[in-house]
Design a binder for these strands. Structure first.
Length: 324
DNA sequence: CTATAAGCCCACTCAGGCGC
DNA sequence: GCGCCTGAGTGGGCTTATAG
């Protein structure tokens, strides 16, 4: 990809850990349905604050002296790509234990985001709800990532719950799709939303997908962009379709994404009305869309539905996105 | 108070490096 | 080869802090 030249996307190195992804998490479902009301409960971290300058010095030292373990690299890379992941997601990507994550936190590599008590209580399927944590890059991890990547997701501590959950669920979609791809013998890649962004002629973002997984096919990587909708407005779908079509015609994406084939859009929606919106937007166009739009409901994702089977809005039928 | 999370200590495994 | 050390990751078990 153009933006992170010389940097391997996370998944290219993580295929060995991926089979762990297969079983259902369940630790995610309730994050969506529960409204944030209760506050953080339990002991709070008393890790002393450090200045951004101190963090940068630590990061430079860690890299120069080669003192970042392979596991630490994998974890920071995963977070640099996905922004915010649960301890469960991190485990399924890297096989890192909660204990080690705690250590990384202490070393300023990671930050924790408070998980709300009610949402924890609502867990029913989780293997170990007590160990569920939300992690983002910490001050040092952020600086490490900045040295490796042009754009790094930041600011989660300032984001509202809705936004954080949006990103966690987006990552869940990517991880589950990747897990299936690995199961079928492919080596999937995982690009961040920054790497997936396409700009207009003035340099402003024209498309800002939530993530960009890629799966090889016939020796060439085939890209998908994820659009995760956890709102219930059908009009958002129409504007997305219009925007993708505009960007397609513009053609700039070929250079920015370094691909000859426009990535297919994987639209995941928590409200059926959004899927309906896509359907109407596509069928009502006078010209047949040039982009491929695929849809799946979040309900199906967490129910363990086959992650390769998506509804193709253009053709009006189910397809297998890894084989068709 | 209780429930929950963070902190801390110890012990174990495993891999790599070093000296002999 | 062997023994020894060190660092990383891990898990158990206990203590301490804090919101409700």
């Amino acid at each position: 990809m153009p933006k992170n030249v010389g940097v391997e996307p996370v998944f290219s190195r993580l295929t060995s850990g991926l089979p762990y992804l297969i079983h259902l998490y369940g630790d995610i479902t309730m994050l969506l349905t529960q409204k944030p009301k209760s506050r953080y409960r339990g002991r709070q971290s008393k890790r002393p604050e450090i200045t951004p300058h101190q963090a940068k010095q630590k990061a430079i030292r860690l890299l120069r002296e080669n003192r970042l373990s392979p596991m630490a690299v994998q974890v920071t890379e995963a977070l640099a790509t996905g922004g915010v992941l649960t301890s469960g997601q991190l485990y399924h990507v890297t096989t890192v234990s909660p204990r080690t994550l705690q250590k990384y936190h202490k070393q300023y590599l990671l930050d924790r985001l408070p998980i709300l008590a009610d949402e924890l209580m609502a867990l029913d399927l989780a293997d170990d709800p007590a160990k569920l944590r939300l992690y983002t890059l910490g001050p040092v991890g952020l600086e490490v990532a900045r040295i490796r990547h042009e754009h790094v997701p930041t600011g989660y501590t300032g984001y509202g719950t809705h936004r954080i959950i949006h990103d966690v669920l987006t990552n869940e979609v990517v991880l589950r799709l990747a897990a299936l791809a690995v199961e079928r013998g492919y080596e999937p890649l995982w690009y961040s939303k920054y790497e997936a962004t396409v700009h207009d002629e003035r340099g402003n973002p024209a498309l800002e997908p939530d993530a960009m997984p890629a799966v090889p096919r016939d020796g060439v990587y085939r890209y998908f962009v994820v659009e995760f909708h956890n709102e219930d407005k059908r009009t958002r779908a129409r504007s997305k379709v219009d925007r993708y079509e505009r960007v397609y015609r513009d053609g700039r994406w070929r250079n920015e994404l370094e691909t000859d084939e426009m990535p297919a859009v994987l639209a995941v929606f928590t409200h059926k009305i959004v899927g309906k919106g896509y359907r109407e937007a596509i069928s009502s166009r006078s010209m047949r869309p040039r982009c491929v739009f695929l849809g799946k409901s979040w309900r199906d994702v967490i129910a363990g539905d086959d992650m390769a089977r998506w509804f193709n809005f253009n053709q009006g039928k189910m397809v297998d996105i890894l084989e068709d």
